[in-house]
Design a protein around this nucleic acid. Structure first.
Length: 818
RNA sequence: GCCGGAAUGGCGGAAUUGGUAGACGCGCACGACUCAAAAUCGUGUAUCGCAAGAUGUGAGAGUUCGAUUCUCUCUUCCGGCACCA
C-alpha cells in the first residue's frame, strides 16, 4: 500500500528546496536576456496588524498560477512582491502606544510575509521592496525633485525641465531679469509640476490631518466624517504641496484607449477626469466696468439667459445686473449654492428653459423662463393636446428637439438673432460663441492632487527654505531621512510633528510629509532593479523589462493608485526615464471573497477565516486550488470551508492515481491532450475555475481506465503544477525526475489527438430533443439524415407527416421540422 | 438622477460566432466496507408526475427551425459618480 498524501510532510520540504535552488530567482540582462520577458505584478499590500484573511490571497494565487505557467513556457518572468508601508493606520497605532511606527510596521510585514510564504507563491523575494526603506524612498524623493524641476509645455503637451522655461523668459520677457529671486521663484511656482499653494481642504481636527475626498464618508446626518474613525471633517484653508496632474488630464484620458483594462475601471477614470467641452463667455455688469466670466457647455442657448448665478450659501438676489452680450438684455445676478467655486469659471449663466437645475432655480425664485430653441409652434400645439397620448407624443418630439436630435432645432425663434436660425447644435455653439467674443475651452472635473500630509509617518519632502525662497535638495543629499520625534501626535494646529523637531526646522526643511500614495506610484519600476543605488533602476534594465504585462489587484484603487501611477509614469516617460507611455498594459481585478454569511470578512462581524488555519488543515495546494475553483476570478463570491474538502479529495485522488501507471490507454491519452489545450487557454484568460474542473474530469477518467501511461501522468502533473506546486513536485521526483517540475517545459497538446472519431449529437423534432445519434464528425448531411430518420423514437413521432425542413449543423445538432 | 455590472438547482458555479441547460465541486439520500464510527468506494440528486410526459436559466414581449446566449420593455441586487454648468 502506497503512502497516503500528507501535505505537512511535503510542503515545507519543497519550499526549502525552491529557495535553496533559487528556482524562482529572476535574472536581469545579460543573463536573462535570451528569453522573452514577462512581468506579472500583484498590487503590493499595506500590511495591517490584522494579517491576511482568505480573501486576500485570491489575486496572488491567480497571478502566481499565470507566472508559473509562463515560466514553464520559457519566459523570463518577473514576479515580485513588496510592501506599501507608510500610512495612517501604523501612525494612529503609534500615537496610542508610543511605539515607533517602523517597529509596528515591520511586525506587520513579518506576519504578512509568513502568511504569503506558506501558500507557496513563486515570488523572487530577493527583489522585495519596502516603501519605508531610505534606500527606496530616496528615489521617491528623487522623482518629487524631478516634478519640482519640471513644467508642462502646453504646445508639445509634455513635461520639460524648468530651466527651458527660464531660458524662454530670459529671451522673451525683458522684465524677467529685473525681477528679484523671490519674484522669479513665485512666478515659476505657477508652472512647476510640484508646487506650493493654498487650498481649502478637508480638515479633520481629531486626526489632525487633511483628508482626500475618498477618505471621507457621510456621517449619516449628511455631515462629512473621516472614513477612519468617523471623526468630523471641516473645510480649512491651508498651505499645501500640489502635483499638477491636471496638465496630464487629456493624456490620462486618451491613454485609456491603448490599454487592456476592465471597462468599468476605465469608465471610473473617465468619469473622475470629467472632461467637458464648452465656451467661456464674458458678461458685463450694468454698473461699472467689471465683468463676469461664465463657463457653459451650451453656448447655443445664450439668447435664453434670464439670470447669472455665482456661488453662495443660500439663494439670494445680489441686487446687481449683468448684460447678456448676445442681445444686450439686463439679467439679475443671483447667489446660488449649486454653483461651485472650483469648477469652470465659478459662475453660471442661467438658462431655465434648457437646463434642469436652472429651471428648478428659476421656478423657486420666480425668474423668467425664456425658450430660445424650441419653436413656439410645438409648445402651443402640445398645450392644445386633446388627450394624454397626444401630449406624450409632443413631449417626445420636444425632448428630441431640446437634445438637438431634430433638424427642427433653431428654425423658430431666437430673439434678435435670425442669423442663427436653422443651424444645427454644433454650428450654433461655434457661431454664437464667436458672435459674443467668447472662446471654446475644455474643462476637467479633476483637481490637482494635494501632495502633503501634516503627519509624521511619510516620506519627507526634500525641500528647504533658504531665506525667503524654497530650494530643492541636491541629489547627493538624498535620501532625506525621517528624523525621530518625541511624539507622533500632530500638533492639532495643522502642523506636522516634524515642526516640533528643532534641528529639522532650523535647517529649513519642509515639515509636511508625502501622502500614502507617493511610494506606491512607482514601486513596480523598482522591482526591476531593487538594489541600484545610482538610479531608481538601471537604464538597460528598464529598457529590458519595459512595463507590466499583467497587473492584478482589487478594483478599489480605480481612482487613486491606478491614476497616480499612470500620471507619474507619463511624467517619467516625458523625461526619457521609462520607454512606455503606460505602466500597466493589462489589468485584472480579483473579486472579493465574502464570508459565508454574505458580508465582508471583518473582525467586526467575527466572520474572518484565516488562511494559515486552512493551510494547516488542508494544505497549501488544496487551499490554492479551492481559491481558484471557487468561481470566476473577477467575480464576488462567498467562502465555504466545506468546499475545500472537495479540492483536498481531488488531490488525494491524483496522489493515488500514480499507482495506476502502466499500459497506455487511448481515451486517457486523448483527454490529457485536450486538457493541456484547455488549461493553457484558460490560464491565459484568467479562467482558473474551469481549469480546475477540467482537471477533475481528467482524474475521473483516469480512475475509470484500467491504467494509463507514465507519460500521460507526467504531463498531467505539469499542468497541475501551477495550481498545486508542492504535491506535483513531490510526485514528479518520486517518478524519477531530479530537477524541479517548475523548471520543466510546459507540455504541448498533440493536435492529432484532439479530434474524436465518433461524436454524439442530439436529434430534435420541432426544437425538442427526442433522441441521440452517434456519427463521425465528418459525416455527410445525407448520412446523418438517413440515420436520424431511421431512429425508432423519431419515426414514431413523425409517423406519416411530411418533413418540412431538415437542419443539420455539422457536429452540433439535428433538427427536424414537421 | 446618471454611468457600469449582475440575476441559472439546497449552495459555489458550467455552458459564446445562437445548437442536448445544470459540467465540475459541495451538500443531501441510499448502498458497500466496518463490531461501530471516520475515511474511502458505488448509485442517485432541477421541478411536477407512479409513469408516459410536461415545465424550467429574474418578469414580459420579439427575432429564429432552435434563445441562458441576440433585440425591446420592466423588476431586483451590487459597484461607481453625484448640484461639474
Amino acid at each position: 500500500m502506497a503512502k497516503p498524501y500528507d501535505h505537512k510532510e511535503i510542503e515545507g520540504k519543497w519550499q526549502k528546496f525552491w529557495e535553496e535552488k533559487g528556482v524562482y530567482k529572476t535574472e536581469n540582462p545579460p543573463i536573462g536576456e535570451g528569453k522573452p520577458k514577462y512581468y506579472v505584478l500583484d498590487m503590493f499590500p499595506y500590511p495591517s496588524g490584522a494579517g491576511l484573511h482568505v480573501g486576500h490571497p485570491r489575486g496572488y494565487i491567480g497571478s502566481d498560477v499565470l507566472s508559473r505557467m509562463r515560466r514553464m513556457q520559457g519566459f523570463n518572468v518577473l514576479h515580485p512582491m513588496g510592501f506599501d508601508a507608510f500610512g495612517l493606520p501604523a501612525e494612529q497605532y503609534a500615537i496610542q502606544t508610543g511605539e515607533h511606527p517602523s517597529v509596528i510596521t515591520e511586525k506587520a510585514i513579518d506576519t504578512y510575509k509568513k502568511q504569503l510564504e506558506i501558500i507557496g507563491l513563486s515570488y523572487d523575494w530577493s527583489r522585495e521592496v519596502r516603501t519605508i526603506d531610505p534606500g527606496y524612498y530616496k528615489w521617491t524623493q528623487w522623482i518629487f525633485l524631478k516634478l519640482f524641476d519640471s513644467y508642462f509645455d502646453e504646445v508639445d503637451k509634455k513635461a520639460k525641465s524648468i530651466s527651458e522655461l527660464v531660458a524662454k523668459f530670459e529671451k522673451e520677457d525683458p522684465a524677467w531679469s529685473a525681477k528679484s529671486e523671490k519674484e522669479k521663484e513665485d512666478l515659476l511656482m505657477n508652472y512647476r509640476l510640484a508646487y506650493e499653494g493654498y487650498s481649502e481642504v478637508n480638515w479633520c481636527p481629531e486626526l489632525g490631518t487633511v483628508l482626500a475626498n475618498d477618505e471621507i464618508v457621510d456621517g449619516g446626518d449628511g455631515k462629512p466624517v473621516s472614513e477612519r474613525g468617523g471623526f468630523p471633517v471641516e473645510k480649512k484653508n491651508m498651505r499645501q504641496w500640489f502635483l499638477r496632474i491636471t496638465s496630464y488630464a487629456d493624456r490620462l484620458l486618451s491613454g485609456l484607449e491603448s490599454i487592456d483594462w476592465p471597462e468599468h475601471i476605465k469608465e471610473i477614470q473617465r468619469n473622475w477626469i470629467g472632461r467637458s467641452e464648452g465656451a467661456e463667455i464674458e458678461f458685463g455688469l450694468k454698473d461699472g466696468d467689471e465683468k463676469i466670466k461664465v463657463f457653459t457647455t451650451r453656448p447655443d442657448t445664450l439668447f435664453g439667459v434670464t439670470f447669472v448665478a455665482v456661488p453662495g450659501e443660500k439663494e439670494r438676489f445680489t441686487g446687481k445686473y449683468a448684460i447678456n452680450p448676445a442681445n444686450g438684455e439686463q439679467v439679475p445676478i443671483w447667489e446660488a449654492p449649486y454653483v461651485m467655486e472650483g469648477y469652470g469659471t465659478g459662475a453660471v449663466m442661467g438658462v431655465p428653459a434648457h437646463d434642469e437645475r436652472d429651471f428648478e432655480f428659476a421656478k423657486r425664485n420666480g425668474l423668467y423662463i425664456k425658450n430660445v430653441i424650441l419653436p413656439n409652434y410645438y409648445i402651443s400645439k402640445r398645450n392644445e393636446s386633446k388627450n394624454d397620448l397626444e401630449k406624450e407624443g409632443f413631449d417626445l418630439l420636444i425632448n428630441k428637439i431640446i437634445n438637438g436630435d431634430s433638424p427642427y432645432a433653431y428654425e423658430g425663434i431666437l430673439s434678435n438673432s435670425d442669423q442663427f436660425s436653422g443651424l444645427n447644435s454644433e454650428e450654433a455653439k461655434q457661431k454664437i460663441t464667436e458672435f459674443v467674443g467668447g472662446k471654446m475651452v475644455t474643462k476637467y472635473k479633476m483637481r490637482d492632487a494635494i501632495f502633503a500630509r501634516q503627519r509624521y509617518w511619510g516620506e519627507p519632502i526634500p525641500l528647504k527654505r533658504v531665506g525667503d525662497v524654497i530650494k530643492p535638495l541636491s541629489e547627493n543629499e538624498l535620501p532625506l531621512e525621517l528624523p525621530n520625534v518625541s511624539s507622533y501626535k500632530p500638533a492639532g494646529n495643522g502642523e506636522s510633528p516634524l515642526a516640533g523637531v528643532s534641528e529639522w526646522v532650523e535647517k529649513g526643511f519642509e515639515t509636511n510629509t508625502m501622502p500614502g500614495w507617493a511610494g506606491s506610484s512607482w514601486y513596480f519600476l523598482r522591482y526591476m532593479d531593487p538594489k541600484n543605488s545610482e538610479a531608481f533602476a538601471g537604464k538597460d534594465t528598464v529598457k529590458y523589462w519595459q512595463d507590466v504585462d499583467v497587473y492584478v489587484g482589487g478594483a478599489e484603487h480605480a481612482t487613486g493608485h491606478l491614476l497616480y501611477s499612470r500620471f507619474w509614469h507619463k511624467f517619467l516617460h516625458d523625461l526619457g526615464y521609462v520607454p512606455t507611455e503606460e505602466p500597466f498594459k493589462l489589468l485584472k481585478n480579483q473579486g472579493l471573497i465574502l464570508a459565508s454569511d454574505g458580508r465582508k470578512m471583518s473582525k467586526r462581524w467575527g466572520n474572518v477565516v484565516n488562511p494559515d488555519e486552512m493551510v494547516d488543515r488542508f494544505g497549501a495546494d488544496s487551499f490554492r486550488l479551492y481559491e481558484m475553483f471557487i468561481g470566476p476570478f473577477d467575480q464576488y463570491t462567498s467562502w465555504n470551508t466545506d468546499g475545500l474538502v472537495g479540492t483536498r479529495r481531488f488531490l488525494e485522488r491524483v496522489w493515488r492515481a500514480k499507482e495506476r501507471i502502466g499500459e497506455p490507454n487511448q481515451e486517457v491519452d486523448i483527454l490529457v491532450n485536450k486538457t493541456i489545450k484547455k488549461i493553457t487557454e484558460d490560464i491565459e484568460n484568467f479562467r482558473f475555475n474551469t481549469s480546475v474542473s477540467s482537471m477533475m474530469i481528467l482524474v475521473n477518467k483516469m480512475e475509470e481506465a484500467p491504467s494509463f501511461s507514465k507519460e500521460n501522468y507526467l504531463s498531467f502533473l505539469q499542468i497541475l503544477a501551477p495550481f498545486a506546486p508542492h504535491m506535483t513536485e513531490e510526485l514528479w521526483h518520486k517518478l524519477g525526475e531530479t530537477s524541479s517540475i517548475h523548471k520543466s517545459n510546459w507540455p504541448k497538446a498533440d493536435d492529432s489527438k484532439l479530434k474524436d472519431e465518433k461524436i454524439k449529437i442530439a436529434v430534435q423534432v420541432n426544437g425538442k430533443v427526442r433522441d441521440e445519434i452517434e456519427i463521425s464528425p465528418d459525416a455527410s448531411e445525407e448520412d446523418v439524415k438517413e440515420l436520424a430518420l431511421s431512429k425508432n423514437n423519431i419515426s414514431e413521432i413523425i409517423k406519416d407527416q411530411s418533413v418540412k425542413n431538415f437542419i443539420y449543423v455539422k457536429g452540433k445538432i439535428v433538427n427536424i421540422v414537421i
